[in-house]
Design a protein around this nucleic acid. Structure first.
Lengths: 237, 237
DNA sequence: CAGTGGTCTAGACCACCAG
DNA sequence: TGGTGGTCTAGACCACTGG
């Protein structure tokens, strides 16, 4: 673990414990250099991490201040996605998956564009209902190219696709591009999420990329509107 | 402008023009050092920028690869918010604002928590309809502490609050915390956004912070579900 | 194993903000 | 004007990947 991560962790704790209270100035970078016995660039990197977490904000000439936050805990960060299973496991919550359908087909034109494949490269088409602590939670429509993601079984779908991809296939994920919108509920939503006819759904569309640069998943997650919201931190510079 | 920004701009252009095609390796960092005649740390910073934009992905031992994306342009990045006026002005789109109500009141308990103020500190309570190219677009419910944001007038509300805050009051914005959810439309939405009874809305809640660490705005933007979606780029490391 | 990217240093200069 | 953070260098060592 890099030094700047350790230093960021120490400083983060001080901010949380209000040793550096909201609105106050942090010690200047030269003082932090003396305290941690590292070079100033390393201190700067640690501060950059905290700034990207929205904890502090630095200004030339002035100093580095602790920001003063409220943040809601029941919102899921939209940019910390390692698969829903991993996210819920981290919070020790019981997540089950029910496979609604599991097929193979040729991709539509839109899907060809998303996954950068041709019309004749087959894709898995998976629909799963995710059940959180006994309550219907999300319907996921997932598409993956068969040549890339081989050997999927119902058994894997019932557990975690992402665990399989990481641990069995050695996938390394570079990131994802997501789009969030509201929609009217469709028949599937009503049947499985127990939405009422006029209930809206919150839909998250995503394309996920490997470190090789290849997209390997396109999915649409349809969330009950009353149980889930997404949060984003927007930090300048 | 820092050197790393210039270098990032040059490399970004090469990626866009496919001098470095999707999936290919970039020249290694030592080669880039020779080409640009800067130190390796500077090259690294330039590459970090491109990585944070989702254009490339680096791996120890292997190299730095160009990612292969498609991304939709009709989605608004959720983390590039300088106020709606500024955003639309940049795209040369005609945005008007109709003031639905403009009052002063004491804050609710929730609002006290969001804005870190007491029950007796008055706040502006503003409801505006934003009209894009003649079409009703968003209803914004905005709350700001009167002691911090002084001198608001209807005239300012009809144009851009953010321009006023930046240019007249000298506000420097550190960032914002947002939460996105779907909701059923209420009477105001139906009346002003011309939603049908069973149309959903996409709601973005946000608290915006100054560089001093103080929150100065809490707002809820209610968007017609069929005209707007938000996009997020999620990059690992 | 050679080659890659990640980290780190000890300085230096500069731009900016405050009093 | 003194103190702050932002940038930049020219090296160095290390961890990891791939053949």
């Amino acid at each position: 673990m890099p030094k700047y991560d350790d230093i960021a962790t120490v400083l983060r704790q001080r901010i949380i414990k209000e040793k550096y209270p909201p609105g106050s100035l942090l010690p200047n970078q030269t003082d932090l250099v003396s305290e941690f016995q590292v070079s100033r660039m390393t201190i700067k990197k640690a501060l950059d991490i905290l700034a990207s977490e929205g904890l502090i904000s630095s200004q030339r000439g002035a100093g580095t201040r602790v920001l003063n936050h409220f943040w809601s805990k029941d919102s899921s960060p939209v940019d910390e996605y390692q698969g829903l299973s991993a996210q819920m496991a981290k919070e020790n919550r019981d997540l089950r998956s029910q496979v609604i359908s599991f097929e193979v087909c040729f991709p539509s034109e839109a899907l060809q564009k998303y996954l950068t494949i041709t019309a004749t490269q087959p894709v898995y088409k998976i629909i799963r209902l995710r059940i959180l602590e006994g309550q219907p939670y999300i319907i996921e429509h997932t598409y993956m190219p068969v040549d890339l993601v081989s050997g999927l079984t119902e058994e894997i779908l019932k557990n975690s696709i992402y665990t399989y991809l990481r641990e069995e296939l050695g996938f390394q994920i570079a990131g994802a591009f997501r789009s969030i919108q509201a929609d009217k509920s469709d028949e599937l939503d009503q049947k499985y999420l127990h939405c009422k006819l006029d209930d809206p759904v919150l839909e998250v569309e995503q394309v996920v990329y490997l470190q090789s640069g290849r997209p390997f998943e396109y999915s649409r997650s349809r969330n009950r509107y009353d149980v889930r919201s997404y949060s984003v931190l927007d930090v300048k510079n």
